[in-house]
Design a protein around this nucleic acid. Structure first.
Lengths: 200, 200
DNA sequence: TTAATTTTCGACTTAATATTCGAAACATAA
DNA sequence: TTATGTTTCGAATATTAAGTCGAAAATTAA
């Protein structure tokens, strides 16, 4: 008895709630992202939020799932070229860099909130963890291929991953100024730090 | 009317409480680091904790103050050699690396907890902020000197700082394995990433 | 020994915030 | 139009953890 339109409206309202949650997070930080605030921002009563989501956590998980799915689907098309691991690696990083640049607060959420919330957000079972794992796997594979071809410094690939992950994170999320990093600056960094070994 | 020994014993008990707090943090994560847990670990009643510290926050601040003081006092002796900025920079990083290696959980606390706690922990007035600021200032100065001498890539020093900060952080604190990084591995990284420009 | 001082603590209070409840408002279809 | 299903919400409840209280235990000094 639930019409198509009703379903769509439901989806739409869930969407609004998610947007409100992100907006509260962006403006007031994660600690102020209470259900009361989110409800106010979404212009719903608090109880209504629970009509659409079973818990606050479920809202957060939904954000993470959608976000990581988007990341994965953005890089997926470029990662199959295994001939030039270094170029592929940098391409993929650049894609993620663009995403971050265009939606800083979403990605701040995706990349920092799970760290701050050591509850069940981080359980392996969630979809977003799967995408994250796949992505890391791809990057690590590219690093290993690249090392085999002398396009990267010879190091334990897992440690190199951590270093690059930290570097990326530092570039975008450390420091006071939240002005997004330009593509050019980022490329400069990537090539400077990991791209100046071996050949094309 | 408070004897010397009494004062010492008080200090000692404060010490025990701080150690318990770190231990709880290490074993259960920051979210489980409640006063009840810390009290249990320290084998004191909860109220006794408040006899020695006026709040939970004060315990954390004490940890941060002592920790950052230690960091500062460890690098202070080596940073005055301004002739070889790159070497000095790497020396200082290595010193911090050794400290981290020898006390992983303390430094995880120092470097990650303030991020997770957007309360007054981060107020500029605290001693530890002063040490942190001084340290960053020194590192940035070294980077700038080093760039002037072509020992580092030419980039905006503040962004380079962020990148290196992120990289360092990634090396020590990202990933699953908490096995500390060996000095050799770390030196390898530092020189590979930031040390292979220009000359001595 | 005993009075004063210091230290300890379990039980209570408070505060913040997530979650539930039950009734009302609204929409839909017969 | 009315009966049934859907959506909304403010008020009440539950939970968690910080912080307080007043009395008791331990220590010290006379």
């Amino acid at each position: 008895m639930i019409s198509d339109r009703q379903t769509k409206e439901r989806e739409f309202r869930k969407e609004q709630i998610i947007k409100a949650a992100l907006s509260v997070f962006k403006n007031n930080g994660i600690e102020k992202a209470t259900m009361d605030e989110i409800a106010k921002e979404a212009d719903f009563g608090k109880a209504t939020l629970y009509y659409y989501f079973s818990s606050k956590e479920e809202i957060f998980i939904e954000i993470l799932n959608r976000g990581w799915k988007m990341i994965w689907e953005s890089i997926e098309p470029v990662i199959h070229d295994r001939d030039k691991p270094k170029d592929t690696f940098i391409d993929a990083l650049n894609i993620i860099g663009s995403l971050v640049r265009n939606n800083q607060s979403l990605f701040e959420f995706l990349f920092t909130v799970p760290q701050k919330m050591p509850n069940s957000l981080n359980e392996d079972a969630h979809d977003w963890k799967g995408f994250q794992r796949k992505m890391y796997g791809v990057f690590q594979g590219l690093l290993e291929d690249g090392m085999a071809k002398n396009q990267f410094p010879q190091m334990r690939s897992d440690i190199l991953m951590r270093a690059i992950g930290g570097l990326f994170h530092g570039l975008f999320f450390l420091g006071n100024e939240k002005k997004p990093m330009s593509r050019q600056t980022m490329e400069e960094f990537i090539t400077t730090f990991i791209g100046n070994y071996g050949t094309t």
